[in-house]
Design a binder for these strands. Structure first.
Lengths: 356, 356
DNA sequence: CTATTTTATGAAAACGTTTTCATATCAATA
DNA sequence: TATTGATATGAAAACGTTTTCATAAAATAG
């Protein structure tokens, strides 16, 4: 038997499967260093050697041990994602794109759900930080005002990208924002153009930039058209089906009732339609309704619901583009974009706001 | 200065942030081994020591380096998931539960989408295998007949759990199956009970166990009630909106038309309803329709659509239960359950099959 | 044809844990 | 008191890469 150069390896009785760089080295009578270089396309490796290595790697079914390489090189090729919940239409679409696009760049995606809880969100940042993700994408909970649990990433020079629900400008992270002001403005204006004079607004908790911006857009449109805004016609609660129904009850037990409703998500808009049906309020006619997000359900319900498209796939695409760009900045540049990336919105007019 | 015991560490100039086990050891004048044991609740560590370590870890903001520990202990605490697409209602719900429950057990989830392509699915198994996931969960593409790309996990003693779309019994993996035969049987019987005599069936590609089983259930119900089955009233195509519309066209341009339709997903059922509306076919009355999956849209469209609930959250829950149980079998037992786990179905009757 | 640069490879350390083996302390038993 | 067994800790190796440093070989220049 020929004397064995890399004894450390030979001593260890191998299982069956996990072949290492040492196996290749052994087989080709080369050093592990060369194998590593060949596998990583290091320039200083002979073409023939590279071919040999690739071939042997193939033959032995070699697969790089990502933990070993991650430990050594301090890269995981993994991106973390924190979202409220996977099974919300908008987020599911965003994730779909993010995962697909990241995969093209050789990154894996670890998805975590905060269930819209701040404390869970905070815990997840710990987990993902411990996992040494190369970057973090986050859509925060609606209650997140303090973003300090993301500081560790920033200080660690790990890029952080916020989308949908974002901290104020100035935080050292990249912001991907929808045109919430504009979306709300368009929806409200559309209701006004459809003849509505008394428009109610189902907003969300004002802790989130989303609803602040949208409310501002709503108010702007109202003001521009000289329409009065009723304080008690604006609701700030979690945007659930039940809450929307309660809001409708509150609205319609009063003496003067609205003739238009702008709801900040489609679940609420749909709940409003249900309430209207149950109470013989014509939609449109008696009440015109607009929602937000362009959930597939809006196109299907009768009447179909006017909504604001947020282009979730575009959001996902921009996120990955931005991320890969930032990650190319090997240590060099700053790990965030100074200006937020803006994703357009588009009003999708449907039957619930039709005029006759 | 006191002589430094763990020089290796002290030599390395530390960045700011990443504290290691050596920092704690240094601070407490203990060995790294003891720190590791304390952090991992090893029994042979003094209560006071443990407290000291925990405290110091807290103080130094220590976070275990998962790559180092993974490399050493050959565990990643990471589970891989391969699905066709995140943004399908059923899968989004399943994922939501899986991620939440896995997190409780300290596992991370890496989600990958095959986009229903066999070759992508195969590639993803490579990626996840290289990532050394502790377990794999997979809902295969509809075209997957050959499951050999999962063999490496099995041979490596890594548990594999299939759900929704599963290989034949006998494969050394755990199967989580819905009662597809029963679901289809119930839906078909329900149509029959509603008075349908001529029932069409929009199936899917018979490469998948799902559609084989459901078609069998459909046929069983028909046979049991002595109803003839028209070969050309059964469609095997990808279950898209467009395909369903084409199927409807094909059905309704014939001399004799169906009075019932059992569609294998809700997208198809909804497409059928649209077609019916466009062509003045009364639903129900002229045509009764049942779908599958209980997509939220089915409750909202007019008429609402009868469908089969598959309890995605229960699927997710069982998957995680099974997984954690298997992973407790440290090397010892077999890494799969011999018998498939069965998830019940429930028929949700709605307006589209109502009788008058 | 030597001197220099460029290309190609090897030796060995390093990444931060976990774990085996050895050893020390301590309490309980004979 | 000597002996055992349980408890508690330390030293050092190991996990599989990557990378620095050194050096050998080849190519180029003087």
């Amino acid at each position: 038997m020929v004397a064995c150069k890399y004894l450390r390896y030979m001593a260890t009785a191998k299982k069956t499967y996990q072949n290492t760089i040492l196996d290749i080295a052994e087989a080709l009578k080369l050093s592990p260093a060369t194998i590593s270089r060949a596998l990583n396309n290091h320039p200083y490796v002979k073409e023939k050697t590279r071919r040999d290595v690739m071939e042997m790697a193939q033959k032995l079914g070699y697969r790089r041990n990502l933990m070993a390489s991650g430990l050594r090189s301090n890269k995981t090729n993994t991106v973390g994602l924190i979202i409220p919940r996977v099974s919300m239409f908008f987020h599911a679409e965003v994730i779909t794109t993010i995962q697909n696009d990241l995969h093209k760049h050789g990154f894996s995606l670890i998805i975590c759900q905060s269930n819209d809880s701040v404390s869970m969100e905070r815990e997840l940042t710990e987990t993902l930080f411990a996992s040494r993700v190369d970057a973090l994408i986050a859509a925060c909970s609606l209650q997140t005002i303090d973003f300090s649990h993301f500081d560790k990433f920033v200080e660690n020079n790990t890029p952080v990208i916020f989308y949908d629900r974002v901290p104020v400008d100035g935080y050292k992270a990249t912001l991907i924002k929808g045109e919430d002001f504009k979306g709300a403005y368009l929806a409200t204006k559309h209701l006004i153009d459809a003849g509505c004079k008394r428009i109610a607004h189902i907003s969300g908790p004002l802790t989130s930039n989303l609803y602040q911006d949208r409310e501002a857009g709503f108010l702007k449109a109202m003001e521009e058209h000289g329409l009065p805004v009723q304080k008690e016609w604006i609701f700030h609660h979690e945007l659930t089906h039940e809450n929307a129904k309660k809001a409708m009850q509150a609205l319609f037990k009063k003496h003067i009732v609205p003739d238009g409703l702008f709801a900040n998500n489609d679940t609420s808009a749909i709940a409003a339609i249900e309430y209207a049906k149950e109470n013989n309020i014509a939609v449109p006619g008696g009440l015109s309704i607009a929602g937000y997000s362009n959930d597939p359900r809006t196109a299907i319900i009768t009447p179909s619901v006017t909504s604001v498209e947020q282009f979730p796939n575009l959001v996902g695409k921009r996120i990955v583009e931005t991320l890969t760009e930032l990650l190319k900045n090997e240590d060099g540049g700053q790990m965030y974009k100074t200006d937020p990336v803006i994703i357009p919105v588009e009003l999708i007019a449907r039957a619930s706001t039709a005029t006759y």
